[in-house]
Amino acid sequence: MVDPALILPPKPDERWQLAKQMGVTKTVIHPIEIGDARTHWSFDDLQGLDNWLTNAGLDLSVIEGSVPISDRVRLGREGRDEDIETFKQFLRDCGEVGIPVVAYDWMAGVRWARTAAHVESRGGSYVTEFDNAKVQGGPPSEAASATHEDLWEALEYFLQEVTPVAEAAGVKLALHPDDPPREELRGVPRIIGSVDAYDRVLSAYESEHNGLTFCQGNFAAMETDIPDAIEHFAEHIHFVHFRDIEGDADRFVETWHDEGKTDMLAAMRAHEEHVGDEVPMRPDHVPTMAGEDNSNPGYHTKGRLFAIGYMRGLREQARAEQ
């Protein structure tokens, strides 16, 4: 079963109140997505944030995006052990504060990629696009010297090191798919782009604390049957990104949540039937709507209000059918 969640800023503003007005109390902290360049949280940062949210009637459910994993770790380069120790302490701090999920990714060199942010959609709204043909050229990334097996060795080493710490801290790890889920991007190898890849991740360290962020848009770009994948990974889904696309990993556009290629009611039925209790599900990459300036594409407020209402309606229907 899933529970609606929202990215909220670390400091209170009207979005905290709007969340509660919508009946959403699960909070996701992802500073990059709200224009904050923070890359590390100290224990005092985490404790202070949790105290503020709790006092406001909100629950700090997930930290994602701004977690201390360097490319030295992702590529298995010299210095990774020092950086892994930093991440281990971060997990201990999250556990002590009571933050149950840490979402992370394994995209080295080039991270999330979009090539347009003013693609016109329904009613003149704007959505984002990725087109692999538009990201070619330029000097090679330093990460392009790595191989797919370099990244696999680094990830498997990382999981062997950190999963026992996550278990002891009571924190669940939720690995996000590569976005876009391609074999490579601008010459940099990528490895988290298929169901088989996640099977290898989960077998690298078998633990309920080694799991995934089920980003529906990325699984759709993989040409994966979404309900089947949800059932397949159910016990390891610790966090859900509710979004949809039209297209594939070579070229896609984000869509309104009710207009993409995925049967979203079937997806919600699968989450409700197979996934563990109260897994946070947040809307992702929403359209920019009338009156919004598109300065933060995919993360303005009105599209998220629409998405939460849509998610709650789908969940109500799925639960009524059980």
Rank of each mutant, 00 (worst) to 15 (best):
A146S: 11
T147W: 02
Q160W: 13
E167P: 10
H148F: 11
S145P: 00
G170A: 10
L155C: 06
L159C: 07
A144L: 00
W152C: 00
A144W: 05
L159F: 07
A166D: 01
D150F: 04
A144H: 05
W152R: 00
H148S: 06
T163L: 15
A169M: 09
A168D: 14
T163G: 10
P164C: 15
F158N: 01
V162I: 13
A154Y: 06
H148M: 08
A169E: 07
S141P: 04
A146I: 01
Q160I: 07
E167Y: 12
A154E: 06
D150V: 01
T163Q: 15
E153W: 07
A146N: 02
A168I: 04
A168T: 10
A143W: 05
A166Q: 03
E167R: 11
P164R: 10
E156S: 14
T147P: 01
A168L: 12
S141H: 13
W152S: 02
A169V: 11
P164D: 11
A166E: 02
E161V: 01
Y157L: 11
W152Q: 03
V165W: 08
L155K: 05
A146P: 05
F158P: 03
F158K: 04
E153T: 15
A144Y: 00
L159H: 00
L159R: 08
D150P: 10
A143E: 05
L151S: 09
